[in-house]
């Protein structure tokens, strides 16, 4: 069963003078196992939207249904929330326990699992995020490096085996190698746990690489939603909105403007390389 969002509107401090409507009339479905990329400029409502997914905020009007559980209802919310794992931007907001092992087991312990199952899940989660069990399990989370902290935070959510994994800018502040590692990890969870992923990112390159569906938010509304191919063919519109289309999409657009007859819908480096090779091959043959 999917997450269904119907006519979702959210207003901060509704009824007061400072009332601010962050989300307007959002309709969106997140299917099982789907990888959804969520993009939008700062203040477009991305963070507000993902907090609706596990009931940390409730809609002012409209509904959020997670696998049949209505997130506006207090009792159903707890059940719905256990299906949605949420990783926040900064691991510092989450790590608190004495050891990495204990910290990762916090979520599973709250789920009231038995100790063997918790132990199994913690080991599995640490393996999936690439933290060596013998080296890290007994370390304090506060003496880790930035990247290791982020892995620990991720593992803390993974160990809950969420059906939907929601990531708020998981790559913020990481170097290119770190970004790649996180992306590969996310792909790893997806293939091994079969969870759906909702990823918020500023970097369209990262979204272009893995997402099956891309949602573009603008001023609290869904500006456009579709496959990466459909979205990134709008490279110029995205650029106008203050977003940076993927490198390959921009390059293809520039090359086309210079008269190279490249096909539309190129948004990954691999596709661009292939198209260019074909183009050169075609000319060479002629």
């Amino acid at each position: 069963m999917p997450i269904v969002i119907e006519k979702l509107t959210y207003t901060y401090q509704s009824g007061s003078v400072n009332a601010f409507t962050a989300l307007k009339d959002i309709d969106l479905t997140i299917k099982d196992g789907e990888f959804v990329g969520l993009i939008g400029h700062t203040g477009s409502g991305k963070s507000t939207l993902i907090q609706q997914l596990n009931g940390l905020m409730q809609p002012t009007s409209g509904r959020v249904i997670v696998d049949g559980y209505d997130m506006s209802d207090k009792k159903q919310r707890a059940k719905g929330r256990s299906l949605v794992g949420m990783v926040f931007q900064y691991p510092d907001y989450q790590l608190f326990d004495e050891t990495v092992y204990k910290d990762i087991s916090f979520g599973p312990r709250n789920m009231k699992l038995d100790n063997d199952e918790i132990d199994r899940r913690v080991r599995e989660a640490m393996r999936l995020v690439g933290l060596d069990f013998d080296e890290f399990a007994e370390k304090s989370p506060f003496e880790l490096s930035g990247g290791e902290k982020r892995r620990t935070a991720l593992a803390g959510i993974i160990a809950m085996y969420p059906k939907y994994l929601v990531l708020d800018e998981p790559m913020a502040g990481l170097d290119p190698a770190g970004r790649r590692a996180v992306l590969e990890m996310i792909d790893g969870f997806r293939s091994q746990l079969g969870c759906a992923v909702v990823m918020v990112s500023h970097s369209m390159d990262d979204i272009a690489r893995s997402a099956e569906k891309v949602v573009v938010l603008r001023d609290g509304r869904i500006f456009t939603c579709g496959t990466p191919q459909e979205i990134f063919s709008l490279a110029d519109e995205l650029y106008e909105m203050g977003l940076e289309p993927p490198f390959a999409a921009r390059m293809a657009s520039d090359l086309r403007r210079r008269g190279l007859l490249l096909p539309h819908g190129i948004y990954t480096n691999e596709a661009l390389a292939a198209a260019l090779a074909e183009y050169k091959g075609g000319r060479g043959n002629a």
């Binding site: 907090q51 940390l56 949420m86 926040f88 907001y93 989450q94 916090f106 709250n110 803390g156 809950m160």
Partner: peptide, 8 residues
């Protein structure tokens, strides 16, 4: 919020 999301 981060801890509530972990079932606290």
């Amino acid at each position: 919020k981060a801890q509530l999301a972990r079932g606290a």
